[in-house]
């Protein structure tokens, strides 16, 4: 790409560093922004900057928050007895939108993956173990991806949680709603059979 303006070039370079955005798309975004009112662009810049200057990670659970503690942690109606462990805050949001979970969360901030240079010390694991000491927590529910990284992280966590005397659970993995059994892969189907539940009328 041949630029005639250093400022445009800088903006294109910056935008194309986003995942999934190439130079061409970045240029389209720049052209779009140039047409918008200054206020709107300032607002965008401000919103982006705040992500770094004002956003907190909740000091208890690691969730993103506008305050020192997130809205789940300060909510007195949430049960202290169950902690749900998730990989990152987008998974937390997904579980929140099911409205099925009334306990609290713990956000790991990733999964153990030596290939990507992520070890247990790079994740919020020590703080999870700390939360369990002298607490009301009776169950830790692990809701991590069904990948090699998710499974090995769960195994490692379970090893560390076991001596603390809490019940350790992981969310069931089964056939997708609307999915036909015929199309389910063998592993999922096998696990669904092994972990079948009583049919309640």
């Amino acid at each position: 790409m041949q630029f005639t303006s250093g400022i445009v070039e800088q903006a294109v370079e910056a935008l194309s560093s986003f995942p999934g955005i190439g130079k061409r798309t970045a240029l389209r975004l720049v052209m779009y922004l140039l047409k918008r009112p200054e206020m709107e662009v300032a607002h965008l810049a401000d919103a982006l900057l705040k992500l770094k200057t004002e956003l907190h990670l909740c000091e208890v659970c690691g969730n993103v928050s506008d305050h020192k503690r997130c809205h789940v942690c300060v909510n007195p109606n949430r049960s202290e007895e169950v902690i749900c462990v998730v990989e990152d805050f987008s998974d937390l949001m997904a579980i929140e939108s099911t409205a099925q979970f009334k306990g609290k969360y713990h956000v790991l901030g990733g999964l153990i993956s030596p290939m990507d240079g992520v070890g247990p010390d790079d994740l919020n694991i020590a703080s999870l173990l700390g939360r369990l000491e002298n607490s009301l927590v009776g169950e830790v529910m692990m809701a991590l991806s069904a990948t090699v990284e998710g499974d090995t992280t769960m195994f490692y966590l379970a090893k560390k949680l076991k001596p603390m005397g809490v019940t350790i659970t992981c969310i069931a993995r089964g056939i997708a709603v609307g999915g036909e059994i015929e199309y389910a892969d063998e592993v999922t189907l096998g696990r669904s059979i092994a972990q079948r539940t009583e049919y309640l009328l």
Binding site: P114, G119, D151
Partner: peptide, 28 residues
């Protein structure tokens, strides 16, 4: 799992590794 386990062994460069971490790969 093997790729991850080998990456772990390599990054630790011969130092001691928490057996819980190593066995999380063994479990797979």
């Amino acid at each position: 799992a093997l790729e991850q386990r080998n990456a772990l062994l390599k990054t630790m460069q011969g130092r001691y590794i928490d057996p819980d971490l190593l066995s999380s790969y063994d479990a797979k």
